[in-house]
Simulated assay, not measured.
Amino acid sequence: MKIVAIRHTSVAVDPGICYGQTDVPVANSFQKEKDTVAAEIDGVLFDKMYSSPLTRCKLLAKSLFEKEKIVFDDRLKELNFGDWELQSWDEIYADPQGKVWMDNYQNLPALNGESYPEMVKRVAAFLDGIKHEKYNCVAIVAHAGVIRILKSLIDKQPIDELFKTFKPEYGSVTEFKI
């Protein structure tokens, strides 16, 4: 099965702000970025389309697959950063609890939020579910964190390496084969 993972387009949030599962609006560049993604996947025949239900993904999925049924799945949401949603990363790091978390983000949960292992578990459950389907090609519109986890699970790469080497850009397309 081929998986075409599409990261949502740019968001209307200042740089350096943590927004995780907050339902933020898309940037004014949406149409241009959507057109670029559409051109990149033009001609690909998808058996099924999945998307995070957050607006930044949902809007892109609905725009790309206007006449298709899209499955919106909560397991494809970005990490829930809890109390740190919509704070700047600098503010989070300046907070003693935030610093402890940032120094061990792969194990500890965000303050009143989710841990990275919890997110990996839900993305892995999604992936395990679609592996049993007889699809040739699926589209997944999601977030950078979800796409990194997919890469880690499918390509068997340590996630800590991927945080340094694999940074899906807004409106990017990443293909996997399972």
Rank of each mutant, 00 (worst) to 15 (best):
P168M: 07
K177Q: 15
E161V: 09
K32G: 15
V24L: 05
D74F: 03
V146N: 03
L60S: 02
V11Y: 01
H143Q: 02
F176Y: 14
E40R: 15
E118V: 01
F126S: 06
E169N: 13
W89N: 04
S152Q: 05
I140V: 14
P158A: 11
T55V: 12
D14G: 14
A144N: 08
E169I: 12
K177I: 15
E33W: 11
D73I: 02
E175A: 15
E40C: 14
L162C: 11
D47F: 07
S172T: 13
Q97N: 03
G20P: 03
A61S: 11
V141G: 00
V4A: 14
Q21R: 06
C18H: 02
E40M: 12
I149W: 01
L111N: 02
S29M: 03
D35F: 12
A139K: 00
S172I: 11
L79P: 04
Q21P: 02
P96N: 02
K34A: 15
F81E: 06
H143V: 00
E91Q: 07
A124G: 06
H132W: 09
S51H: 01
Q31N: 15
S115P: 05
V123Q: 03
Y116L: 12
L59Q: 13
D90E: 08
A144H: 04
V173C: 14
S29G: 06
K151I: 11
D95F: 00
E118T: 09
V37K: 07
T36D: 14
K62T: 09
F176S: 15
G20L: 01
A38Y: 09
D90I: 04
D42Q: 14
Q21K: 07
P168L: 05
R56G: 11
W101G: 03
V26E: 01
E85D: 07
P53E: 07
D155S: 12
I3T: 11
L79T: 05
T36S: 14
K2Q: 13
K131N: 15
S115A: 09
F163C: 07
K58V: 03
Y50P: 01
V26A: 03
S10T: 13
T165F: 03
Y105E: 05
S51I: 04
P53N: 05
L64Y: 10
G171L: 12
K151S: 11
N107G: 12
A38L: 11
D74Y: 06
V100P: 02
K177M: 12
W84R: 02
V146C: 04
S10W: 04
I140Y: 01
A12I: 12
D74T: 08
K177N: 14
T9H: 03
E68L: 09
H132V: 14
H143G: 01
V173L: 13
V141Y: 00
H143T: 00
K121V: 08
Q97H: 04
S88W: 03
R148K: 15
V26K: 00
A125L: 07
S152Y: 07
V37T: 12
C137I: 07
K34C: 15
Q106G: 10
Q97P: 02
H8I: 09
E169W: 10
W89A: 05
K151E: 12
K164N: 06
